[in-house]
Design a protein around this nucleic acid. Structure first.
Lengths: 197, 197
DNA sequence: CGATCGGTTGATATGAATCAACGTGCGTGG
DNA sequence: CCACGCACGTTGATTCATATCAACCGATCG
């Protein structure tokens, strides 16, 4: 059990284990020496920190707990030997590798091409789908532990600007993000703003 | 043999094969319906289009030849059965998957956090290392077939602004990019601008 | 009760986009 | 062989999106 805000892994740190987030939320990020930080993605229950880490000696990224979280570790050697033995495990790993790659490619597109509104809408949509896959959603209200600072660091904007865009979304009746929950008021509208295609 | 500019693969297209670029340059990209385009990365000789495509039914990206290029195809089924049989091939694939993931994470950071100058310097440095790994470089002159439009689409800027930044680099004696070759005049300076850490 | 954190809002500054004109080299067709 | 068109890059003027700076508010907590 890890408290909210605790750093779980650090770039370049050697790890014998492969980690899975079992409960709570986390995020993967790069920290730049001047204080800037890029959040690479958010980790939800069931997520491997990274499929690549099955083959990496060291983390090439850092990880923090966003909420209180549970993590579980598997010996890398054991994972790899099982991988050789069982095609199902290989397929499972391959699947999450494909999903990660595709998500990274899309996020790269969002960061490179999208406006502030589009990026935030994209992030929210992406998260919404992943949250919905994990828990029953009623009335389009999603558990949402991110602070505006996290959104800002994920989409490459300032917290102030994130605040403005979210206010806009709220005023337009698209989504309301407040204090731990995200409420979608107009999904079609959100998709129109933030879909890649 | 594929002529320069030819589209080789299209998003969502079903493919039975896994492709490798054997000669020339290419790039992977997303095309948005409104004309915007994000170049995800550049392909150099020896590169798999994507490690993930060994496990994907369809491309999740498009690919174009940047110069005249040669591509070679391997039956996906064959690759996968060899994968199960030989741990070396698995390791090779894993290695390129790790490299791709790491490159994507870094690019995401560059796009999210870096200024125009930093992004372009980062891209050039990244390419320089990959080019140098493939051919002997004399006098810090690298073969460099990108047009400013490609740089722009890769780092999320306008071609006009790319032109301005490159002029600046040239005037400052950092690098000169012109007509098929890139000449590094001050590597340390370039690294100071564009290194992630 | 003060301090801190997260969010909001306004005023202003700035980096990059946009619009536009121009130059140059090159391939193509007359 | 010349002339035209076109792709590519450069440069200047202006606009616009987002950052920065700053003040303020409410909630939470020691």
């Amino acid at each position: 059990m890890v408290p909210a805000g605790k750093q779980i892994a650090t770039r370049n740190q050697v790890a014998e284990d492969v980690f899975v987030l079992c409960g709570g939320w986390g995020f993967r990020f790069f920290q730049l020496p001047d204080g800037r930080r890029q959040i690479l993605n958010f980790l939800l229950p069931g997520d491997l920190f990274s499929a690549a880490s099955v083959f990496e000696q060291r983390f090439h990224f850092s990880v923090k707990a966003l909420t209180e979280a549970q993590i579980s570790a598997m010996r890398r050697e054991e994972v790899r030997s099982r991988l050789a033995a069982s095609p199902e495990i290989l397929t499972a790993l391959a699947t999450s590798c494909v999903a990660e790659t595709e998500a990274a490619d899309e996020m790269q597109t969002a960061l490179g091409q999208y406006s502030a509104e589009e990026r935030i809408a994209y992030l929210l949509l992406h998260l919404i789908r992943r949250i919905a896959a994990r828990s029953v959603i009623r009335d389009q209200r999603y558990p949402f532990p991110l602070r505006q600072q996290h959104i800002a660091d994920a989409v490459g904007l300032t917290p102030v600007h994130v605040s403005r865009v979210l206010s806009l979304f709220r005023d337009r009746g698209v989504v309301e993000v407040s204090d731990g929950t995200l409420q979608v008021r107009n999904l079609a509208g959100l998709e129109q703003i933030g879909s890649l295609h």
